[in-house]
Structure formats: C-alpha cells, structure tokens
Nucleic acid binder design. Structure first.
Lengths: 155, 155
DNA sequence: GGTGAAATCCTTCTGTT
DNA sequence: AACAGAAGGATTTCACC
C-alpha cells in the first residue's frame, strides 16, 4: 500500500463511514484532539482516495423503490466485445444499482431496485431479453433486507 | 406515502446522494436558492427518514479488503428460531456486509468483504459451517465490480 | 505528529413578503 | 415557500512546538 493508516486515521474512518456529515470539530472532540489535525487527516484521506465519496443514503421504501432483485446472468459468447456490450447496457440503466463479474455458476450478478413487479417485468422484457448474447437468467427476489452496511470495521 | 417530494426535494436528494458532505450554501447556489429553504428541506428530509444516513464510502482496495464474495445459502429447517439464529449470527460478523432473505433457489444471499481467500476460508470454516441448520452453500467470487452505486435517480 | 489563534465562511434563526 | 440579515459556530490557514 501507498501508506498505512494509524489508529487515529482508523477512528476517523470508522466515524465518517457512519456519520458522513459530522463536523470536523465534533469529530475532533470525540477523539480528544483539536480540529487542525483531524481536518488535515480527513483531507489527506480524501486526496488519497481512501475516502472515495460521501453518500446520502435514502430509505428505498419512502421513495417508492420497494422491490430489489438480484439477477444471476450467464452469457453465451464470452468474447470481449459481447461482454463490453453487456456491461455498457447495464451501466446505462438507472435501476441497475450494481453489476459484478463473478466466478461460479453464472457470469454476472446484477442488483436492480425498482418500484414494483410490473416495473421489473418491463425491465426484463425491454432491457434484458433484448440483449441476444444472454444465455440463462435467474432472478432472486428480496423478501427482507436483514443486514446492510457500507462501513468496514477498521481495527 | 406520508408526503410527496417536489422537484426541489428531488434535486437536493440527487445531489446529496453523490455529495453527502456538500455545504448547504453550495447546494443552494446550484439550485439558485438561498440557504434557508435548502437548509429547512434537508432537515425535513432527514427528520422524515427519507435520508437515512450519510456514509463515507471507502475504497476497499486501499484498506485491504480486496475479496468480495456473494454466498447463496439454503437452510434445512425454516422454523422461526432457526432463521433468527442464522440472522443473529450473520449480524455479528463484521465482514458480513449484507444479508438478504430471498425467494428463489436459495433462502439467503450474503455479501462478505475480506482481505483475501485465506480469510474467506477461515470465515467459512469457523463461522458458516458451524451453523448446523445450513443445507447448501454456493459461493460466487467477485472478479470485477463493474457498477456500484447507492444513489437512486429521482425524477 | 500536535496546539492555539485569527480570518473567513457557513449555519441557523428571526422577521418579512 | 422563499428572501435578507445577523449572531453564533465551524472551517481553514498560519505561526509555533
């Protein structure tokens, strides 16, 4: 790695991962430091890309995106152009939140979040099934989200 | 829904989802508004739980969590106590980032992020295989993360 | 690595339309 | 719903340890 995180960096990151809008001053008080070193450390962590962004996380139920589906997809032709075409297509669809190239029974795992089953049907019909390189598709519908975090526990 | 989001709310949310630490003043300037209405709208969106939190998002490669695995798990006994026991166990493991109860070929989808394959082996051996209600486990190793966003496109 | 202080900028509230 | 203005805080830089 470019450099190592000391215990103060880790404490800062553990807090910022869960309270991204905390003031530097409040963060400094929790660590029993003054604002200057904390300010400088945060700026450094941002500049080095360790903190890649700050995200306001919305409650999907309250903005009418109640349906989450994980779609396992295998493709027929694994030639580069076909794979890139598939990925470009997925990239352009706003309801597609995540796309992973995976090793295992399928080639890709795709997470979509949408309003309801009708929207999902339309997505499959109009966006997925029109890609003619697709071999097999298996949809896993999320019944409950039992755990979800973007925060790593740094120690 | 409790109330509807107007177009100003949506613009605020679209920005805060991607720039969670932006100042109210800078946000207001982008919308050609003064700080007061923007400040009040943000507070309301937070209070109503539409914005559930602000998260600093870290680059997993730079903090030594290069391996992501999606684990599909089916359980033998679906009695409530067994399910709750499984979920409690997953909840307590920091490398487990996400757990979904799903409908489909498996019962649960679990996302873990760890240092390397050795750490994953230890996780399977010491945390997963000791749960004796587990029937079948299928691991999908992430080769590349092609798309990842926590932001919904509100319009 | 850290502190303290000063200038600047932002937040937050009140009064007004 | 939004604006303008003001007081109190926070950010950011700088000199110093």
């Amino acid at each position: 790695m470019a450099y190592t995180l000391d215990s103060t960096d880790k404490k800062i990151l553990n807090i910022l991962q869960n309270e991204g809008r905390i003031t530097t001053k409040a963060l400094a008080e929790r660590l029993n430091l003054t604002t200057t070193p904390v300010f400088e450390r945060i700026k450094r962590l941002e500049k080095n890309g360790i903190i890649s962004k700050y995200a306001g996380i919305l409650n999907e139920k309250l903005i009418d995106r109640k349906l989450t589906v994980f779609i396992s997809i295998s493709i027929k032709d694994h030639a580069r152009t076909y794979v890139e075409n598939f990925l470009k297509e997925m990239e352009s669809i706003p309801e597609v939140m995540e796309v992973y190239h995976i090793a295992g029974n399928y080639d890709f795992l795709v997470k979509v979040m949408m309003k309801d089953m009708e929207a999902y049907q339309k997505f499959v019909l109009n966006r997925l099934s029109v890609i003619n390189n697709i071999d097999h598709v298996q949809s896993s519908f999320v019944l409950t989200k039992n755990k979800y975090t973007t925060a790593f526990e740094l120690s």
